[in-house]
Design a protein around this nucleic acid. Sequence first.
RNA 1: CGGGUCGUAGUUCAGUUGGUUAGAACGCCGGCCUGUCACGCCGGAGGUCGCGAGUUCGAGUCUCGUCGGCCCCGCCA
Length: 589
Amino acid sequence: MTEETHSVPRTRTHNCGELRPSDVGADVVLMGWVHRIRDLGGLTFLDVRDRHGLTQVVARDGSAVLARIKQVRPEYVIGVAGPVERRSEETLNPKIATGEVEVEARALVVLSEARTPPFQIDEETPVSEEVRLRYRYLDLRRARMRENIGLRHRITMAVRNSLDADGFWEIETPLLTKSTPEGARDYLVPSRLHAGEFYALPQSPQIFKQILMVSGMDRYFQIVKCFRDEDLRADRQPEFTQIDVEMSFVDEEAVFAAVERLMQAVFHVLGKEVPAPFPRLTYDEAMTRYGSDKPDLRFAMPIQDVSGVFREGRFKVFRELVARGGSVRALVVPGAGRQSRAQIDNLVDEALALGAKGMVWVRQSPEGAIQSSILKAAGEEALAQVVETVGAGRDDLTLIAAGQGYEASVLLGQFRLRLAEREGLIDENRTSLSWVVDFPLMDWSETEQRLVSMHHPFTSPRPEDLDRLEDDPAAVRARAYDLVLNGNEIGGGSIRIHRAELQARIFRLLKISDEEAQARFGFFLDALQYGTPPHGGIALGLDRIVALVAGEPSIRDVMAFPKTSAAVDLMAGSPSSVDRRQLRELHLE
RNA sequence: CGGGUCGUAGUUCAGUUGGUUAGAACGCCGGCCUGUCACGCCGGAGGUCGCGAGUUCGAGUCUCGUCGGCCCCGCCA
């Protein structure tokens, strides 16, 4: 038999996703995982799978490999050799790229056997995330994860190419470094050579990238792991990847332009064009109109000020609040006015659950009569005026809240998001990229009883606010900006302080003593004194960007080996205890 | 640390008011099958109901504790 003279060479000629009708007749060698076996008795089909796709292999009656193929099980790694054949018209499979052809197995070798996997490697079988994480190597074989990881690679390459084209150099910075001031809790690494001393893993390469500007590197980027020892969320992992960028001799405009080109390159990977420049709004506008510093601008629904209606009105609660400098704000929810009274009351309960003191609503009956939870107390006239001011239609529901500062807007901002989602007002196909600018420089921390940097302590104040730094620090705006994608913060940066005197002044305000500043980052303050170019930059969250464009709910789904919400690696079993000998070497016992 | 939710076969789930021998689907094992492609048909094996106490004549079901997954608050420059 000629078949028995066949054997399988050591290397493949094609991958499992590339055979086409033009290959018909060629003798090929495929290698991959057994995806599925369809044993029809005297005829057996087998799908062999690799990263590139799926190819059908057929073994016919009388073939020498038919007996052998029956020994094969799912997830075995095999090699198959044989001719490519065109499938007959009725047996084409349009669902796979190689579906017009199949390979007739003349030889088959089992390269390695596989235990029965704990779950099926397909897209149909649901698997809990816990099991997926424990057997991540199997989960990564599934199309969803394979596509996410591939997308991440293509985005990463697009980022590198875009920044390279703009003259950036990719430069590595240390992972064993020194604790940065302020910010998140550090991961610490004990030093063996220096008893009682520790390295810190970087929360970001902030100081190093600024020093690279002092060094004259001009434009730097790095796709780099960062570490923060804080509690986890769907969009937060203890180690995550930043696209870290810094530029010399620039203002905000140059940073925005570079990042806009970069984001266009990212979306180009998906075949999407995004218009630039991206819209900008100030922190104050964002907070006032959307109740968030990362507003989702895929839909409108701005929060409006109706303080004027209540300033002189009958409704005492609002009148007095406005008199004390507060504001009354309103959110129109299109189409929500026809909900039942009970549903609307539920919204008020929801507001109370969010910690609000209260929330008021107004709507019109189908006949146009004003209905409201404060109809008697505020009077029909005032409420009609609200409806007119905000431009609410017959079917709309208007929610009203009052408070000091951004309090009312923040509450309504949460309903803006929740209700837009519930009412289906968000166009999932839209892409909204925007800049939020003019963040406050500092914020009062109740827990620490001192001013803290809102961004980080190297952020430059806006020059026109400099004279207010000491008298009214809360009013000082920073040259800081965030990049927002569909209501998610995907990056933040600033123009930095490049003069040592101003940096020292900021530290005084932050109650960071000279001694402390010297001890923790004296090297950086020294560097600033040797000729520092004006500079600024940004850090973008690569995991978040990929998750958002992949439509995944969690950044875990775009990371090969993520940790659980308790910061545990279920596959590797970390963290774990270590030998006492290791502890002794590290002077930890 | 706090709030919510889930934990039953390898996997995903069902399991009534606390009551006989805890079920289904997929997977797995065996058999049949020459054009399947989530093949089909027949048969079979498979359970520490997360763990530990408690209430009860009797607990998958109720109570308490504990462990783990997920979401959220705080936290995250």
